[in-house]
């Protein structure tokens, strides 16, 4: 097709312009890699906090961005889920595949947990909330990282419902952003979402408003 020929021409021309602009070009990965390795990286990589202060920091930073946090011991997750959902008055939630295995406990009785096996958006929109596990949490920034793996699932179910209950294991909590990036490096190509508090905006007079399009309420169960 003629139009595609034009586009193909654009690719060659843009690359040519870049090479002319730079005055050189190399496709030698060793050369580029050596220069890349010389980039200064003096910033903080590894956290310095002990376990206790680390979890406290995560909790403080999550709360600072309007998430609620409950701490439980291992084995107490199902009970905590029941308590929180009871308080929130939520009964019917969408959940990803493999959630119970990821949590290491069966889900509590008395609620309707429907597994997402490729629901349409409209179907997801009928739920009162979503319950998931998480991949890693960053204390410094109050961030929870979700990836498309069993227990966390596709992106739409954690987005469309108005309420997200998320379980974070203490072992998955790190202090710094670089530590978190290290943890997800091997699964970098999975759909990944960093969640830091509920959806928010400050577009009107810089007043921070909780909840626009994503879940307006985020509760976190932190399991020690």
């Amino acid at each position: 097709m003629a139009s595609e020929a034009v586009v193909a021409g654009a690719r060659e021309e843009v690359l040519h312009r870049i090479r002319v602009a730079l005055g050189f070009s190399t496709d030698d990965a060793a050369v580029v890699g050596a220069e890349y390795a010389a980039v200064a990286r003096e910033y903080k990589r590894a956290g310095t906090l002990g376990r206790g202060p680390l979890l406290e920091k995560l909790e403080e930073r999550l709360r600072d961005y309007d998430a609620s946090v409950i701490r439980v011991k291992a084995g107490g997750v199902a009970a905590a889920i029941a308590t929180i959902l009871g308080e929130r008055g939520k009964r019917r939630l969408v959940v990803p595949q493999g959630l119970a295995e990821a949590l290491g406990e069966p889900l509590p009785a008395g609620f309707e947990f429907v597994v997402d096996e490729g629901m349409t958006t409209s179907e997801i929109d009928t739920f009162e909330g979503v319950l998931t596990a998480s991949t890693v949490a960053i204390a410094e920034t109050g961030t929870i990282v979700l990836q498309n793996v069993p227990g966390q699932g596709r992106r739409a179910p954690t987005l469309v419902p108005d309420y997200h209950l998320c379980v974070v294991r203490a072992a998955d909590v790190v202090e710094t952003v670089p530590e978190a990036m290290d943890r997800i490096a091997r699964t970098a190509t999975l759909a990944t979402t960093f969640v830091s508090g509920p959806s928010a905006t400050a577009d009107i007079e810089m007043t921070r408003i909780k909840g626009v399009h994503g879940p307006r309420f985020l509760d976190v169960i932190l399991v020690e």
């Binding site: 930073r61 961005y65 997402d116 096996e117 490729g118 960053i138 410094e140 920034t141 109050g142 961030t143 498309n148 596709r154 992106r155 739409a156 952003v177 970098a188 190509t189 999975l190 759909a191 990944t192 979402t193 960093f194 969640v195 830091s196 508090g197 509920p198 959806s199 928010a200 400050a202 994503g214």
Partner: peptide, 24 residues
Amino acid sequence: ATGERMNPYNSIWTGVDKTAAGDG
């Protein structure tokens, strides 16, 4: 940008999800 430690959402995705359920 906004004076936040991290903005509420960062999305990272790679190409398209080819599994049956699909993600995105």
